[in-house]
Design a protein around this nucleic acid. Structure first.
Lengths: 194, 194, 194, 194
DNA sequence: AATGAATGAGACTTCATTCAT
DNA sequence: AATGAATGAAGTCTCATTCAT
């Protein structure tokens, strides 16, 4: 089925090298100061090759973002199977989110957290729909009792989470994102759905 | 007494023109895409004049930031006189913060909210010490009863506030920052200090 | 064997054009007033191309310097074969030096002779070690009899030579560098090693 | 006679401040990197004032040069009175020259020793005529016996001296200019006029 | 005599992107 | 698929100098 000729395999390998090099470099170097040429030099590929695989450096960012989404979804789907309450699921959701940011690193998070990043404001992202599903279900099942709608809750939670990651970036990762996330989300959940 | 000669006055005026032009342009144009040349063209001054008054465009951002701080402080000092509880003061504090961001505009806020902005992480800023004072006083007076220290409360509140402003930027100001801020802060305050 | 594709050859040619254009222009125009843009305009290449091949204009100077060194060495090695006395070798050495400065031109020499040029103060340069070898050998063979060490002689000779070239630059090449060099060096050699 | 009003005295004082500040700064900072603005900032005068007293920074250099000439002449005239041979006078001449360069400092010397400096190539300078006079007198008195003319001797001596100062600049003053000058000039004098 | 605000040409350099090979 | 030479627009900043006060 998949006709992976030698050439295609090589191409996949090359693309992976560029991807990984970028991920590595974005940790050391401010995203805006990261140039295609620098990436290529480190990755030992030509700039032409870079443009063969990606449109520009934002393109890689997007790919990382999507791969993180996929990774997130996969993890969630596996965990969801276990019988948990809505509250527990919410907590678990944001714990996982914090894990992912930690895993992808501070540099990547800094690059991501800018106000022009419209990847954040996409309500169709799997991540967003997943949390909404959890909340809607929780409200239906009376596990969540609140004056606020599921939509409002979702927004408050994401806003809080982003505030924490933003703070983590500002403070150069000088605290455990996972612990802080857990603490803050717990606090918000208790406040909105006591 | 005041050695404001005609020429000195003219200089102050010129600097103000640059300042205001920048403030105006940062609303229309992404900060990173705003160049010194563009600012000068609009302000009708030479680039030399720009560099006579400011070191670079970040320098103006800083000035705006500090002026906002001063403005904030002045407003707070006036309001504080009225007898209010600590809780009311906290709410008032963030209401004012939201007002300021609204007043300085979306463009300015977007320029400000980037993860490399170390102006945020300065614990000596008047704004920060003011909130801390309110919290410490509130705890002393038993108006705030919480498991968390004043320092922890301060951090949670600022993190929340930044999350909201960040969201406001992401969504291009499509909701009232002042209302959202009031609602979220109320929620957090109730959660931490019931 | 030689992986000189058509494109690689073209690149070498382009670099050579820049190099030669620089050498040409440095004769006409004071080095400090020679700008990258001017060089590019004359060479009919883009500034980008310039920076692709060289780091800056000092970089070309260095290349010229090193090429001159190589040229010098090659010439010396050929001449050395002939049986000469140490004194003759010294004279020959500085005759060749004068030839090279004459060949590279007044403009180049003027650019070179500034007090910040640390290319001069590099005792590991082939040119320097060559003269030292001649002197050491001359002392060993009793062809040079002097109160001064080989090292001291070397220094005096180079200092003298530089004084002459400096003078040649100051006087805009209004005398034969080769003749003057020959005369002065002869005089010094006789003085130190009679 | 001299109507030194308060205003004129102030002007002289200001000019002196600029002069001294320049002399001070040229020791620390490469001459080419020394800007009028920097000098004025350090001297606590306005740029306007600078241009009131000097045409540009080269103008100050020239003034220093001339003052050094005057200083040199004065010193020589005093010493000449003593009965000395021509040879001793030559040695004394260059000893004094070395003293002056040492006194004015490395930075000043570095600024001076560039190939575009036409102050050097001025045969009417007092310094030049003084040495010529010594040589002519020495030849007349049969104190100097040489194949070379007084003019040729003068040139060789100055060329040598400049070579030494140039070397002193290149090596960042890492040897005693006065000692080296004495040694080299002695050597040349012996060579040309045994 | 002194000030210093204002000018603007011009230098340096970077960098995304193309395209022939 | 991969190369890397070439492009040139665009941005930053400097600095000598002028001139009204």
């Amino acid at each position: 089925m998949a006709k992976l000729t030698k050439r295609k395999l090589q191409a996949i390998k090359t693309k992976a090298i560029i991807y990984n090099t970028f991920l590595e470099m974005v940790q050391e170097c401010e995203f805006e100061k990261l140039t295609v040429e620098k990436i290529c030099k480190r990755a030992n590929v030509s700039v032409g090759t870079f443009y063969h695989h990606y449109r520009n450096k934002y393109d890689i960012m997007e790919e990382i973002f999507h791969r993180a989404d996929d990774f997130f979804q996969e993890k969630m789907l596996n965990n969801q199977i276990k019988g948990k309450t809505a509250i527990e699921k919410i907590i678990g959701f944001f714990d996982l989110l914090a894990q992912i940011y930690t895993r992808y690193g501070l540099g990547f998070s800094k690059a991501l957290f800018n106000t022009r990043n419209n990847l954040f404001v996409n309500d169709k992202r799997i991540m967003v729909t997943m949390l909404r599903d959890i909340l809607v279900q929780g409200v239906e099942d009376n596990q969540i009792v609140s004056d606020l709608t599921a939509e409002e809750l979702k927004r408050i939670l994401f806003t809080t989470a982003r505030g924490i990651v933003f703070d983590w970036c500002l403070r150069d990762g000088d605290f455990s994102l996972e612990k802080a996330m857990h603490q803050y989300i717990l606090l918000v959940v208790r406040a909105v759905a006591p």
